[in-house]
Design a protein around this nucleic acid. Structure first.
Lengths: 318, 318
DNA sequence: TTGTACGCGTTATCAG
DNA sequence: CTGATAACGCGTACAA
């Protein structure tokens, strides 16, 4: 119970600069109603002693903590990682302390984390949505949060261009290929599963292609295991709903020495491109999503801008 | 500036249960000096209204925030990810809120984060060390932090068995191989670089083997690029200092259709084992490291145990 | 065993 | 333009 370093308070600064607490407070809060001279006087002391106001104290006064909660599904999700890595600098630059938490796809954990953030007087939240997450849990944060990967109405959302990405892949392939397979994930997952699969079947329908799709889990194991079933129809090209699936498929193809099949992956990870150079990838723009999310949140917090849905443009990399 | 939900305070609970603030405070802090009956009475109200004391307020009273800072180098480091994922549940279970921050290998960022945590009255810190991190920056946290991956004296540290792992790999190989190559990373990195390399050269020396080592960066690109140089000496087995290097090397070998070389990787990632099944891996125990770190930190915080260095046992997976 | 009164560091209000 | 002073929610001597 020792006072580790006699950290100065606003009161000390007041004494040292010969003014009152209130004036110091005004200075550090950029109140325009302070005389130039006194401001300088105080600022000098502040800088000299490296004074920073106690976060906990100002949090208690309802001022907010300059804290942003970032709720990811899993720490080791490559896509979310990319997004997060791109928001951090933005938050830091604006003096916010981002705190990262894992939801592990559990709505209940989300709830716990959210109340924790509320207690801590966090100023805002970025949350990566997942199947099963209900927007009703977010009502408290409605006007200070950004949702990623799901278009919740009344919220500011950053969405990926699932449909567009699949279409870009198909349009590219359709020039030379008429037998195009698809390895996806089950329709339980609304975006990565259902949306991308629908885009595939729709395209097949309007272009009179015979669909050849298998759906499984989101993992490279799944891609590997499902490879055989797609190949039955002897496609000349295969679209993978995610890059992990593409990894699995590529492993299978390489093991069987199959070289004449074009592989396209929705989602463009470094590792995939490194290991299987021939794979064509569609970049969903995870990095950009992070930047967008951070900037939007800051705007919401500062100027209270209206909810809107931003779709990050996808880009095919040939 | 609206009061979003009229959150109850300790005062409200006091009124509702017909006692004074102080009694309520005592109850929620488990002060043994309260009568059974009143405790129950208060607890009932507390539970009924889901009351939780304001974190910021008690932080201000110097009570600590029940916050643990976890400073990782990079969010997408597989090894650190594993470790972190294993500490989180431990911290949650004990009522701590872990907050994860990135150092990006910058001592200066570490410093910033540390002072941030200090302001926030964080209770403890877990920090993943890296080359360039000086233990002097940690003095304030000396008695409430755990360092991972470097043996700082006077601190509680969780270290990986760099030397042991390399020796296990070499001992295994030495049964059948006398020409063993090594792809590592530059000696600037004290543990992954220097320590593992030294273990290799030492083993070669004592067993009269001709060393054949190349050192580069910590990336799969580096593994790929350096492959050729090691092969010049036509080794029958190659040890990779990390699993990313092993990925690069394996890609190279597979492209050149070289199948007669045994690859051993220090560090055993799912992806590596999945993609290149034949690779032998030495597990450094990242998961265990996380668990150890969390438990040690809790012990330090609770019973102020002495600094010690724990080496996580490595294990060869054949 | 419980209640009273005070202080923690900050901001907001209201005089001056 | 600035300085007292009162809050904020909580913990804790001290008194009862």
């Amino acid at each position: 119970m020792n006072k580790p370093s006699p950290n100065l308070t606003i009161k000390d600064i007041a004494k040292l600069s010969g003014v009152s607490k209130s004036t110091v407070s005004r200075v550090i809060n950029h109140d325009p109603m302070v005389k130039e001279s006194t401001r300088n006087k105080v600022m000098a002391i502040v800088e000299q002693y490296q004074f920073t106001p106690s976060k906990s104290a100002r949090a208690m006064r309802g001022y907010g903590n300059k804290v942003i909660g970032i709720i990811v599904t899993r720490l080791d999700s490559i896509s979310e990682n990319h997004a997060v890595r791109n928001m951090l600098p933005v938050f830091y630059a604006n003096g916010y302390d981002p705190i990262i938490i894992e939801s592990q796809f559990s709505p209940q954990k989300v709830e716990e984390h959210l109340t924790m953030l509320k207690e801590k007087q966090a100023d805002g939240v970025v949350i990566f949505a997942f199947t099963g997450l209900n927007s009703s849990r977010l009502t408290f944060w409605q006007d200070k949060c950004v949702v990623i990967a799901r278009p919740f109405s009344e919220y500011t959302c950053i969405c990926y261009d699932d449909v567009g990405a699949v279409n870009k892949a198909l349009t590219y392939l359709y020039q030379k290929h008429k037998k195009i397979g698809y390895i996806g994930i089950t329709k339980q997952d609304q975006t990565t599963g259902e949306l991308r699969y629908q885009a595939y079947t729709n395209f097949c329908h309007t272009h009179k292609l015979k669909p050849n799709a298998v759906l499984g889990k989101l993992s490279y194991y799944s891609g590997y295991e499902l490879a055989e079933s797609v190949l039955v129809d002897s496609p000349t090209a295969i679209i993978c709903a995610t890059d992990s699936i593409a990894l699995g498929l590529n492993k299978f193809l390489s093991e069987k020495n199959i070289n004449n099949i074009v592989v396209i992956s929705i989602g463009s990870s470094e590792l995939l491109k490194f290991l299987f150079t021939k794979t064509i990838t569609v970049d969903l723009g995870f990095d950009k999503a992070g930047t967008y999310a951070a900037n939007e949140l800051l705007q919401i917090l500062q100027s209270g801008s209206k909810p809107k849905i931003i779709t990050v443009p996808s880009q095919i990399l040939i």
